[in-house]
Design a protein around this nucleic acid. Structure first.
Lengths: 206, 206
DNA sequence: ATTTACATACATTCATGTTTGTATATAAAA
DNA sequence: TTTTATATACAAACATGAATGTATGTAAAT
């Protein structure tokens, strides 16, 4: 029984991506052989090589599937409804939402985990790092705009530059995500992430 | 010509560690074969296997060589001369010193780079992550003590808990180091790291 | 009839761990 | 002090396994 319908093929493609994510997160990217990924997906390497050129392309597909929507969501959360509520609250909500997403969505959490601690950024993967850094720059710019709003509305200490505040927030949150993801047993952060975020924002209030 | 003197052997051992660090940082840990490490060190795999059980042990040796002294240095910087100067200045100097170290010392920089983006934390390497997290906890505790000093001296806003401030600083700095190391061309951070650190500390001042 | 969506088989490369060989440093015995 | 025995510090060879990429086969969808 070969030659499935187009929809069936798409299903197998997704199953392969899903299996790859599982494999990557438990075994690490470099030690995940396509043989094992295929087996976990219930297919053979033939199917994998049919859908993806090689492991790198499979990785890219897995990464993009989660992060492209995520970037859009971030932009939307930060910028949309610009004038509807307190800018500082908007930033706080953005951070809280992201933590919440990691709590709820296994796929997103696994992807973050792979990106942050199960992957070596050399050769073909170096470009992924640059891409991530690019996304970060975008996020920082967005946060900065919101801080500018806060600045204009007189919500924060006027001698703090929005650019520096934005970078400080981004670095804080980057550190938070890293520790959140790596601290697997959750003893250090899981319980107090929300408190920390609120404290971080409170530092800025007048 | 085999059977060198003990001192010669120690030299070889160091050469292997050094070569491993170079290899790991350019090729990534998992793609660095002991064959290539040996060749870079000017020896054969025989020498490598004589000095180290396997690649994991070699990695541990490389890691410990840089990080054990580093941890001591951090403790010293943060705690020593406790009453000699402003606590906030002490934290600021600790952060600035670390960035300065990364600027000056190639070996330390490479090691950080490997730890942060050229290594997959699975299986035998998972313990390294836990070890790093343990170190982080220690650092946070130290920072917290210094913030307590600042608190008692009335230097900071009294409704900010030292524990939260310490964690906020640590996460900020963790994020900063990550970006500092990964942003290889330095376009995003290299120039403004010091400014950001000072801004971060200034946020806390009364 | 032809392309599609795979499974199967094949060839090659590469890394690892182990074993063996060996010249010499070093410590003990004479 | 010289001789001797043994452990040391590797190099070289070997054996094995695993992963990759490609090529071929094939049944069903289109």
């Amino acid at each position: 029984m070969v030659r499935k319908t187009k929809e069936d093929a798409e299903v197998t493609r997704q199953r392969i991506i899903h299996a790859a994510r599982e494999m990557f997160s438990t075994t690490g990217v470099s030690k995940s052989s396509l043989e094992k990924v295929a087996k976990l997906a219930g297919v053979t390497r033939g199917a994998v090589y049919w859908h993806f050129e090689n492991k790198t392309e499979l990785f890219h597909a897995m990464h993009a599937q989660v992060f492209l929507p995520l970037i859009e969501r971030i932009d939307a959360t930060l910028l949309a409804s610009s004038n509807e509520q307190n800018p500082l609250t908007r930033i706080e909500n953005f951070l809280l939402d992201t933590i919440h997403l990691l709590n709820e969505d296994e796929v997103t959490r696994q992807t973050y985990e792979i990106i942050m601690s199960k992957c070596e950024y050399v050769d073909e993967f170096a470009s992924v790092l640059q891409q991530i850094l690019g996304n970060c720059s975008g996020i920082v710019e967005n946060i900065e705009r919101v801080y500018q709003d806060a600045h204009q509305q007189g919500l924060i200490n006027p001698n703090l530059s929005p650019a520096q505040l934005a970078m400080d927030t981004h670095l804080f949150f980057s550190g938070l995500l890293h520790m959140w993801v790596k601290d697997s047993d959750g003893s250090r952060l899981k319980g107090q992430a929300e408190t920390l975020i609120k404290a971080h924002i409170n530092l800025r209030k007048k």
